[in-house]
């Protein structure tokens, strides 16, 4: 079987046009920033490109792996699924803005390091932000709670064993140091991760 493909006639290059763009205002890790963006740019491209914050990683450009996670107005978001133009006026926190200004680690970061929760470290933005999000809502999560909270992120190095251990350890540290936020312990209702986790009945 041989098929002769008929090529379409060569199209001439389009007129060289300016890529549509705009200027947006952001607060990035506490500092005001004005940046010129192309309308087609994703938030992750602007954060890594114009803003030079390379701690936010790209693993899939498809919302699957979570390496591009950051906070937009206090909510964790996968920044490869956000058009930069839509974030105009937003407050962003990236992995660079999580610890202290002198590079000091917060309890979660220190717990990750002490528990050897990562190997290559590429997936850390997603796992750190997801853990933070969980612990801000629940200061004493169960192992299953942690696994539910991490489910939007992929890691290929650790099998999640030490990530889970680290998250539980971080919760303990927060409780010990009194930095745990207890505000939502009493709140009822589903947590964000519940929707995408298969919960099973008791195992035999």
């Amino acid at each position: 079987m041989t098929i002769q493909e008929t090529p379409s006639p060569p199209s001439l290059p389009e007129e060289v046009e300016e890529v549509p763009g705009r200027e947006i205002t952001l607060t990035v890790n506490g500092r005001p920033r004005r940046v010129r963006i192309e309308d087609r740019q994703l938030l992750v491209e602007v954060v890594r490109g114009q803003l030079g914050l390379i701690g936010t990683k790209v693993g899939c450009y498809n919302g699957d792996c979570g390496a591009c996670t950051l906070q937009v107005d206090g909510e964790i978001r996968k920044s490869c699924l956000v058009l930069a133009a839509s974030a105009d006026g937003a407050e962003l926190t990236t992995i660079e803005g999580v610890g202290g200004p002198d590079g000091a680690l917060d309890e979660i970061q220190q717990a990750f390091w002490d528990n050897d929760a990562f190997q290559c470290g590429f997936c850390l933005p997603g796992h750190l932000f997801a853990t933070r999000d969980l612990l801000d809502a629940d200061d004493d999560p169960s192992e299953q709670d942690v696994r539910d909270a991490l489910v939007g992120n992929l890691c290929r190095c650790t099998g999640y064993v030490n990530l889970v251990k680290a998250a539980l350890d971080a919760a303990q540290r927060r409780r010990t140091t009194g930095t745990a936020d207890r505000r939502s312990i009493e709140e009822e209702g589903p947590r964000p991760a519940d929707a995408c986790t298969l919960h099973r009945g008791p195992r035999p």
Binding site: L53, E96, G99, L105, G121, L124
Partner: peptide
């Protein structure tokens, strides 16, 4: 501890 853990954990 794993080297450069602090750099990885702070996005540097």
């Amino acid at each position: 501890l794993r080297r450069d853990g602090d750099l990885l954990l702070t996005g540097r």
